[in-house]
Design a binder for these strands. Structure first.
Lengths: 226, 226
DNA sequence: TTCATAGTTTGATGATTCCCGAAGTATGGC
DNA sequence: GCCATACTTCGGGAATCATCAAACTATGAA
């Protein structure tokens, strides 16, 4: 019976909804701290910590120490691939259950991804930023161009100040609904705040849905399209 | 928290060692009856039956009735892909356990992956096909060249006919043992059948091991190398 | 040093799961 | 019709798991 590696020990970990949530959160690409993950999955710090050490021992996540912070991220690309590969099967599995609200499409359209925007519109925005050369570089080494810095400064976003924190300024983040990239990192967060502050969109509490008013969406599009 | 499909319900199923064993058994490609699977996993028929209905409801396995027999197989390729994708992560996770039989090397060498060939030799074959420009294109859009169509036609494989199904003709499939790509899709299946029909290799029953005779391997290499 | 923050470890407990045996249902052969 | 085979459903007991609160450790800041 024992042929090939034992899938089940890994799958069992992912099979825990809490772990699955944490992992999908990490699938976004950015490294998160234990406290952030606890918040993300709606669990106690102790619970999360326990799981993280398990996930670490199993080679699913890796730790990066920075002072008293520990940043967790997916151990490597294989893990991300495995998680992604489970998604198509899971959608069908889920469809058999009595669940399907109007929520799903809304989530796909625009949602918060930890502290930045994800979904259809976020992807469009990201593409436009790249197209306008406000952002440059490949997935691993994305950076803000000088022109980008000027653009964001006009919106009151001081990229130099953001860049000082220990958090990366901008990172690409892979989107499950779109299978394409959107903007994460402290700049991603700042841009998200910009959209909210302006009243163009409202983040629905507890659900991650981000609701744009028709006028707000138009204004947002105008802003990032030129 | 509910963003994206719920991976965990699928993963939890695979996370059960019994189910994992049954699924990996089915990964070999052939449909098996509940009794065979019970034997395979060392469980009672009642237990297996229970799991199978769960797996069926979750869209992981499908049933084919034939008289009083019910043949179970993996529901579709997505499931096979997901299972294969878990393997690389599992190998590392498994390193903490004491395990490694003589089977392992044999599996790495050549094995069936759902309905096509995987492992060392399969990767070499794939590389050669690309080198000879019988296949072209990047991962997402792999296609058979005209020269490729002629080559396969000589082996009695009618690519045009294969292309009619709704299954993709050829797809690259990532290999857990090699970390490289081999050929999947209906062409991959046809090529596998070609090797077996010719008696160059035999698919060992119940395990996924594919055993090439020394002469058979040489002939296979000659075939795809030129 | 001393405090506050970040994270780990350690029980404890309530829920869930795993798996079986026994009894029930469907299908084909005689 | 009747039996054997192939499978499903039911009920239940032991084991495991998920999760928490509280106590502990480590790190940076004042």
């Amino acid at each position: 019976m024992k042929e090939g590696p034992d899938i089940s020990i890994v799958a069992a970990l992912i099979g825990n909804p809490a772990c699955a949530n944490m992992l999908t959160a990490l699938l976004a690409g950015s490294a998160l701290t234990a406290t952030e993950l606890a918040h993300e999955a709606g669990l106690t710090l102790s619970t999360v910590s326990g799981y993280l050490s398990k996930l670490g021992r199993a080679g699913l996540v890796a730790i990066e120490r920075q002072g008293r912070h520990r940043y967790f991220r997916l151990a490597d690309r294989d893990v991300a691939i495995a998680l992604e590969a489970l998604m198509p099967v899971a959608t069908r599995a889920g469809h058999l259950r009595v669940r399907t609200g109007p929520r799903d499409p809304e989530l796909r359209r625009a949602r918060s991804c930890y502290d930045h925007l994800a979904g259809d519109l976020a992807v469009k925005m990201y593409d436009r930023f790249v197209e306008r050369k406000l952002l440059a570089g490949k997935s691993d080494s994305l950076r803000v161009t000088d022109e980008g810095r000027r653009f964001f400064a006009k919106a009151g976003i001081d990229t130099d100040a953001l860049d000082n924190g220990r958090r990366p300024l901008c990172r690409p983040c892979l989107d499950w609904s779109e299978r394409r990239t959107h903007l994460s990192g402290s700049l991603g967060a700042a841009v998200f705040r910009y959209l909210l502050d302006r009243g163009w969109a409202v983040a629905e509490r507890k659900t991650r849905i981000v609701r744009f008013s028709p006028a707000g969406e138009q204004k947002a599009r105008d802003w990032f399209s030129r």
